[in-house]
Nucleic acid binder design. Sequence first.
DNA 1: GTGAGGAACTAGCACGCGCAAGCAAGAGGG
DNA 2: CCCTCTTGCTTGCGCGTGCTAGTTCCTCAC
Lengths: 332, 332
Amino acid sequence: MASGTFSRRVTAADIAKSLGVSRATVGFVLNNTPGQTISEGTRSRVLAEAERLGYRPHTAAQALARGRSRVVLLVLPDWPIEYSMGRNIEEASLALEEAGYSLVTYTRHDSSRTRPLWETLNPDVVMGMLPFAAADVESMRASGVPHILPSPDVPPSWEQGASVTVGPSLQVQHLVELGHRRLGFAASSDPRLSKLVEARSAAVRAEAARKGLPEVAELAVGIGDTSAAAGAVATWRADEVTAVVAYNDDVAAMVAGAAIRSGVSVPSELAIIGHDDSPLAGMFVPSLTSVHLDDAGFGRQLAAIALHAAEGLPLPDADPAFAARVVRREST
Amino acid sequence: MASGTFSRRVTAADIAKSLGVSRATVGFVLNNTPGQTISEGTRSRVLAEAERLGYRPHTAAQALARGRSRVVLLVLPDWPIEYSMGRNIEEASLALEEAGYSLVTYTRHDSSRTRPLWETLNPDVVMGMLPFAAADVESMRASGVPHILPSPDVPPSWEQGASVTVGPSLQVQHLVELGHRRLGFAASSDPRLSKLVEARSAAVRAEAARKGLPEVAELAVGIGDTSAAAGAVATWRADEVTAVVAYNDDVAAMVAGAAIRSGVSVPSELAIIGHDDSPLAGMFVPSLTSVHLDDAGFGRQLAAIALHAAEGLPLPDADPAFAARVVRREST
DNA sequence: GTGAGGAACTAGCACGCGCAAGCAAGAGGG
DNA sequence: CCCTCTTGCTTGCGCGTGCTAGTTCCTCAC
């Protein structure tokens, strides 16, 4: 029967009344407001009463009063997100929650005529994987979003950093260590991925040049398009390519599948390395060598960047967080 | 420079002042408040001015004033979610946005000592894939969550419906049509999935019984555990099982991989059918027959259930939405 | 004895919005 | 002509918090 009655929620005023102090005092205690002196007795009595009554601050009221919502909006791209992204987000969410923020994820479906979530959620921070379109930035500014990441004002964004290039570099290094010199790059033909594909492709070419390899033969492979994959394999073979760097594990699987079907043995005739170390990489036959990224570290980095923007907290120096390593399996 | 000045956000009072009407009038127009008569002239002038000034209602203030936040919180389980779940959510989010609600997803990491999101977000509806634990329900009630789905008061929940059983039935039917009679079921050994595995397993056994098949040989296969998969394949072969129904595509891939590695040809010696029609199913060699679910329909159903709870909107009758079909590929 | 100063509070406004209640002016019926 | 009803508004309170500007009381120096 205790929980049966649909009781109004407990407010700070309830605590104050029950204790015979003013509501302001309660507020000062609960917020540890600096510059306020509260006696130890009162402080502990307020905290105990809050606990006893099951007080929960009303987020909407807080947001209204202080003008900040403590919500971080993470805008996910419309394209199929990487496998590791899910774990990143979970970790970031955890780190933000510990700082009193809520992470809300939002997939932007540009076909939609409805108002984007940042206009209705009043987030303190909006984060994206890639820089936002000018129209979106305008809309965020108009809705009063205080912080936009990557910042539209600073062209070189954080996502262009080590997190993108370290994986492709490792892919190339691994193949070179195995003695391969003539490499192919299997891009994804999905137009939505073009920016990321391009970034990884550039990183691969840069690493190849650094190692003094001949030019990398780049071909596009569509997920589900087996004939394109078969064509790519044939072209690479004709071109004397012995190893293929794939944009990600899905593309790697397409290439490996096409190779097997056309009688090209993996890895002896064609080695293949993927990226992301998705579950698929371990399950495929032959299992796929891939690059494993430190999801948790990346997620925490994401959270740190948001907190840096929102509260000026220091950014963790360097990025041992972006640790990546090659997981060698049967395909190389 | 227009956007340079950090201008305060536009409020309904700004519209009122600029037009020389009262703030209430503006509110009535913007909300189409029933029971209020507003002249056509005033109405259009208010709407035009709102548009001109770029007015955005302040969600927090609305939530505070009306006591409802128009937020639907979807609690995702800690376990690896199905591939199709992502598309479901997107579709549900779209449908809810059109009804003026925001869908926020939240992965519950039970290791966390931070307060669950429903305590800080004040959602109107909290939805889960499976019934919530009693402690969680208590916490939601204490935070004043008006609607919990599946409802803790009504034991038979919607998720137990056709959406769970239709896929497994189709799997069995497909194999029976191909002449198989002695079936195996490949469960997932992930303990977090046990409830769903059990539900699908029961559906498979029920369908098998309906078709008059001998008992289904169920074995657990862990993702990444190749030796367990190999053992399962050997056991089934010894048991004269000719076809395996897999819990999902990942498990199907594990089984198929183990079969190939141990020289059992797929599908001639062992047929395998997966579930979910994830991208993996098409990429695997041999490609995997699977059950494709109507993601969009399921997502819209999810949204409809939420709106039904929140606003008493009618539930769409029946469920052609839960349409599922077998996608036949090489593994059967 | 008195004034300064600090500790420990309280009163009350602001945040932006929804909505109940009230009010002026005109329409219509007797 | 008076009364009622409707139209088209306005005034103002309340939602739960944060926080500024006091107010009271007590201590302590001179």
